[in-house]
């Protein structure tokens, strides 16, 4: 990978950050649609907030700031958050939005308490854990990029192999269930894809804002296409663009990475919603206008 990085017209650390953020954006953008299109975007938000206590607990137990260890903690706690929400919905018979609200704020509160406790320990080791709050691209090393590429690549491969099944079951879970694929499997699969995206993204974009990198590229891509097979790569490409441009911009302007990436991704989504050729607000308004004038004209002719 180093040979490739040397090809970029950027200083080496910036080349690593740019590549890593692009890979992350592509993976988050491609994995999220299977949850977002089913109305489960906020489920991902709560899972992303759930990574915070995971990062803190992993640090407390292991005592070193090794990203791999912290991410394992993040993944376990994100899955815990998912299990808590499903449990509240099924066993506690809580409405889904209430279950998400409870889980999101409780895990965030726990994360803040633990992070504050760690900061007061004052070992000096803990500095940098707050990057998981708002995200930080600086300090990304080649090993992080490889990790994102391999784990994310495996998830992408799974999407390609199971695409027909994922599409059918996300679109019409009952049909797929009659065909022999129980509904819980698609819930589990889309949750697993979300966990992977969230865990890979939380250090760069931050637990609070990660949801935007899941949702905004998908919203933008949905405005541009009517086929899932096109939407997934387009959403990935938009995520990659937001990731790379946001990370570079934030690095040079001395701004926090997560918010800048999120603002760019949101801007892309807004632009797509406005200007998309078929589904955009402007083109729809134009078609309505054209239809109305055509009608008026034909009425005048017939008179």
């Amino acid at each position: 990978m180093n040979a490739l990085l040397d090809l970029l017209p950027l200083p080496y650390p910036e080349a690593v950050v740019a590549t890593g953020s692009a890979v992350l954006g592509f993976i988050a953008g491609s994995l999220a649609p299977f949850a977002v299109l089913r109305g489960r975007a906020m489920f991902g938000d709560a899972m992303s907030h759930g990574t915070l206590p995971g990062v803190a607990l992993a640090f407390l137990f292991v005592g070193v700031k090794d990203p791999a260890v912290l991410l394992v903690g993040a993944a376990i706690c994100a899955l815990g958050a998912a299990a808590l929400m499903i449990g509240l919905e099924r066993a506690g018979r809580t409405a889904p939005d209430a279950a998400i609200g409870i889980t999101l704020s409780a895990s965030f509160a726990l994360g803040i308490v633990l992070l504050t406790h760690i900061a007061q320990g004052g070992s000096g080791q803990q500095s940098g854990l707050d990057a998981y709050l708002f995200g930080q691209a600086a300090g990304m090393v080649v090993r992080d990029v490889w990790f994102t590429l391999i784990l994310g690549g495996l998830a992408l491969l799974a999407i390609v192999v199971f695409f027909r099944l994922l599409r059918s079951a996300s679109f019409d879970p009952q049909f797929s269930a009659v065909a022999g694929v129980p509904t819980w499997t698609i819930d589990a699969a889309s949750t697993a894809l979300l966990v992977i995206a969230v865990v890979l993204g939380v250090r760069t974009v931050g637990a609070i804002l990660m949801v935007a990198l899941l949702v905004a590229p998908c919203v933008a891509a949905r405005a541009l296409t009517n086929r899932l097979g096109t939407l997934v790569p387009v959403s990935g490409a938009i995520g990659a663009l937001a990731g790379v441009s946001g990370a570079l911009l934030a690095g040079r302007a001395g701004l926090p990475t997560g918010p800048v990436i999120v603002l760019l991704a949101t801007a892309f989504a807004a632009a797509a919603l406005l200007f998309a050729p078929r589904r955009g607000v402007l083109s729809r308004a134009w078609r309505r206008h054209a239809a109305r004038s055509a009608r008026l004209e034909s009425e005048q002719v017939s008179r």
Partner: peptide, 16 residues
């Protein structure tokens, strides 16, 4: 073959 109630199908799904 099963034709489910329309509101059990994901709305706004990108499919032709």
């Amino acid at each position: 073959a099963y034709v489910p109630q329309q509101d059990l199908v994901t709305k706004d799904f990108p499919i032709t």
